[in-house]
Design a protein around this nucleic acid. Structure first.
Length: 643
RNA sequence: GCCGACGUAGCUCAGGGGUAGAGCACUUCCUUGGUAAGGAAGAGGUCAUGGGUUCAAAUCCCAUUGUUGGCUCCA
């Protein structure tokens, strides 16, 4: 007998060699029907795999991330089986589940065959047909020699390339129906769990991400255990398309791009600029309260600045092109980050330990050469403005300062309606230290302070190795938007290296020179990216305090324009922004246009309102709110803005 | 940067070897109206740019440029 510990802590006894599925059956039939795999002592196993010793197990269903991953991984095998059945001779690369979104892909080599989205339907039909056969996924350990023999005979050089790097004794095959794949597993019990499938896109991807190797066809797809979940998923995709900030940005006249100005260089239109200005003012107010001082630095910097900072060495060759002065032959670069400039500000005078922390904030516009294929709307651009600040503090202040920055970031998120977030702690890849600058000791200190500060603030965190910046570890905030999509926004980074490189100092209470620690932080990340995420989060229906046009006055006819102007002036005096629709159109039309433009409040004025000194108020998306005096309306707006 | 798709009026898009089409937006006129599109007329395009094939190119070919889906990258 062996002891099986369940997640609730209860221990049950079973015969040696029992499978997770049998355990599930012993608990409840209903549970067993939903079990996709099981976590056994921290490893995900097939539900059918025999357990030979005492273990802690967790049964995985569709509700678990690991359960979903297993489901999609198994789906990838099923799609491969369908592809092989439809297009014999197809060679297979890898077919994993996706990390950030639902679904999976399989990289395949069709040889000379053309493949396009026109073939999707045929494949989906075949997948469903094979799924109905309820073929079991059968695990089989094989020797390296046998594995090589199998795929040599099959002529699949990609699998052979993978096997080459695997140690003998660790290799397993999985077979379902007529398809056998090299695979570590685990898999769902049988193909019958897969009830709905949709191929989502096709794209090229190099074998093992190496552009010198052959390009394979990557087929993206998503599967579900219920048809209704696929329907929901497709609806979500539709909704996401409607909220695309590139589409809304154009429709709402927030920003634009111009071929002549250059790719990745956004032009802020009046309404977008108004929105952005409000965000800036909001942040400035918060920062003043938090003890920051505003600074301003130039858009270019001397090459030596970046040689000192280390950025030149790291990015100089492919990212920076120098600007040369005609006479002296000096070299300048467009500012790609603000930190070196702020270090020089720190150095303008001697500092005492009593002066620290010093907090310099700047809405600094920076320019970076991003690969052309990587540009995307406002989320990835070549010129953008960071809500940047650099804190210079004593080592004993780091954790406290870091925690204050976390507070600020969370304040910003809550003010803008991002309720759901996690924090990602990005550390150095211990296997590849050459990628980073700075001493081991400083890295250890920096990593430690981030981990402790996040823990003390009770943040939900995940740790990612190898995701740190080259000069220091960071804490990135990932927010979930209204559709449940994750975005990386704010970032906080601890840096022991730049102070070293710029030889920053302060005089301690011991009258000795000491090195301050630097914290980089940007709660929005960049205004461009933040606005993009905000647009998609609220679908263009900004909170009232951010709306570029908070109201529009709609006169029923030109007879009431004088009254409309009077109202408009009253609102303007209270810093409430809006326009009057003077067009010679019927009221229904004016309302419709205002609704389409997502203007929060419509003030309708006609004979009745003019006579009684009222306004008829209509709210976007809600409809008629009835009449009130302009003063009542003003109070309503002020109340809504301050909440 | 690499691979694929795309670029037609301000916007959304149709068409397609014989010198351009719709809807919306715009302008003018009629209409002076009550909570999501009133009516009529008009104006607007070197069909991304450059080159080639052809009697003839917006259409076919090549290059460039931009957008886009991926890959790689992200200070």
């Amino acid at each position: 007998m062996i002891n099986i510990t369940l997640p609730d802590g209860s221990v049950r006894q079973y015969d040696k060699g029992i499978s997770s599925m049998q355990i599930a059956i012993s608990i409840s039939e209903g549970l067993a029907r939903n079990v996709l795999a099981a976590e056994v002592d921290g490893q995900v196993w097939d539900a059918s795999r025999p357990i030979e010793q005492d273990a802690k197990i967790k049964l995985l269903t569709w509700n678990d991330t690991l359960g979903k991953n297993t489901f999609w991984h198994s789906s990838a095998h099923l799609m491969a089986e369908a592809l092989e059945a439809l297009y014999p001779g197809t060679k297979f690369g890898i077919g994993p589940p996706l990390k950030e979104q639902p679904g999976f892909y399989y990289d395949v080599d069709f040889g000379d065959r053309d493949f396009s989205s026109d073939d999707f339907k045929q494949i989906e039909d075949k997948v469903l047909e094979l799924a109905k056969a309820k073929s079991e996924y059968i695990r089989k350990p094989v020797s390296k020699a046998n594995a090589i023999e199998y795929f040599t005979e099959k002529g699949d050089e990609y699998k052979l390339d993978l096997i080459k790097d695997l140690p003998d004794g660790s290799i397993t095959f999985y077979t379902q129906g007529n398809f056998t794949d090299l695979c570590r597993g685990p898999h769902i019990p049988n193909t019958g769990f897969i009830k709905a499938v949709k191929l989502t896109s096709v794209a090229g991807a190099y074998w093992r991400g190496d552009e010198t190797r052959k390009q394979l066809t990557r087929i993206y797809a998503v599967t579900f255990p219920k048809q209704s979940e696929l329907t929901d998923y497709l609806q979500l995709i539709e909704e996401a398309k409607k909220r695309d900030h590139r589409k809304l940005g154009k429709e709402l006249e927030l920003f634009a791009f111009s071929e002549k100005v250059g790719m990745g260089l956004p032009l802020w239109l009046p309404k977008g600029a108004a929105l952005r200005e409000r965000l800036v003012r909001f942040m400035q107010t918060a920062q003043v309260k938090a003890g920051y001082e505003q600074v301003i630095t130039p858009h270019i910097g001397h090459k030596n600045l970046y040689v000192t900072s280390g950025h030149y060495e790291k990015y100089g060759k492919d990212s920076f092109q120098p600007i040369q002065t005609p006479q002296e032959g000096e070299e300048f670069f467009l500012k790609p980050m603000n930190c070196p400039h702020h270090c020089e500000i720190y150095k303008t005078k001697p500092r005492s330990y009593k002066d620290l922390p010093v907090r310099y904030a700047e809405f600094g516009t920076v320019y970076r050469y991003e690969q052309s294929g990587e540009l995307h709307g406002l989320t990835r651009v070549r010129g953008f403005t960071q809500d940047d600040a650099h804190l210079f503090c004593r080592p004993d202040q780091v954790k406290d300062e870091f925690k204050k920055v976390i507070d600020l970031v969370l304040y910003v998120f809550s003010a803008l309606g991002f309720e759901d977030y996690t924090a990602q702690i990005s550390l150095r890849d211990p296997e590849n230290k050459a990628k980073y600058i700075g001493s081991d000791e400083n890295w250890a200190l920096a990593e430690q302070s981030i981990i402790e500060a996040a823990a003390e603030k009770g943040l939900r965190t995940v740790v990612e190795l190898g995701e740190a910046a080259f000069y220091g570890p960071k804490l990135d905030f990932m927010v979930k938007d209204a559709l449940g999509r994750k975005w990386q926004l704010g970032t906080i980074q601890v840096d022991y290296n730049l102070p070293e490189r710029f030889e920053l100092e302060y005089t301690g209470s011991d009258n000795q020179k000491h090195r301050p620690v630097m914290i980089h932080r940007a709660p929005f990340g960049s205004l461009e990216r933040f606005v993009a995420v905000l647009i998609e989060h609220c679908a263009g229906n900004f909170p009232l305090w951010l709306s570029p046009e908070q109201f529009t006055i709609l006169p029923i006819s030109e007879k009431y324009e004088e009254y409309a102007k009077k109202l408009s002036d009253i609102l303007k005096d209270s810093d409430i922004c809006g326009l009057i629709d003077f067009r010679d159109e019927k009221i229904g039309r004016k309302i419709r246009d205002a609704e389409v433009k997502k203007i929060p409040y419509m003030l309708i004025v006609g004979e009745k309102e003019t006579a009684e000194g009222l306004v008829s108020v209509r709210k976007h998306g809600q409809g008629d709110l009835g009449s009130m005096t302009i003063e009542e309306f003003k109070q309503r707006i002020i109340k809504e803005i301050t909440v």
